[in-house]
């Protein structure tokens, strides 16, 4: 039991001024992911079982490379936000929660960096 008001409890902790950023970015990336998913399927379906030369030839094109990089950025950002919500919902110990959020960030960043590097390497010439 405390007589302190809720306002007094949060005072001096500062406002993050980012209360809705997570929600908003989740929605923004989800909207971006709709055309990007269609683009990815459009690109990958004809490349199923294709030769190395064929795949490289396709990804080399600047517009395809741009599109693929957009896919990677938007997908990894979206999944980072989504997985963070899942972690925060189901992991209740603070230490483990922090550790998993760190791993989540690390995993999504690594996927993004590795994929973008591969796309650029193909596009600039293997």
């Amino acid at each position: 039991m405390t007589l302190r008001t809720p306002l007094n409890k949060v005072r001096l902790y500062g406002s993050a001024r980012s209360g809705t950023d997570h929600f908003w970015h989740q929605r923004l990336t989800s909207i971006a992911n709709i055309p990007l998913t269609i683009f990815l399927l459009w690109l990958i379906i004809p490349l199923s079982g294709a030769s190395h030369a064929e795949v490289v030839h396709n990804i080399k094109h600047p517009l395809i490379a741009f599109g693929l990089i957009a896919v990677i950025i938007s997908f990894t950002w979206h999944m980072r936000l989504g997985m963070q919500v899942i972690i925060e919902d189901y992991v209740h110990s603070d230490g483990r929660k922090l550790l998993l959020v760190v791993f989540n960030n690390l995993f999504c960043s690594m996927i993004a960096l590795i994929s973008i590097f591969a796309i650029l390497k193909i596009s600039f010439g293997v």
Binding site: S51, H52, F75, M79, G82, I111, I114, S115, I119, I122
Partner: peptide, 23 residues
Amino acid sequence: TGTILFFAIILLAWWLISAAAGP
């Protein structure tokens, strides 16, 4: 499905890496 896709993107990254690595 979100969780499945979280891990499935490893396959996309792996495929891109393999294309960048050579035939």
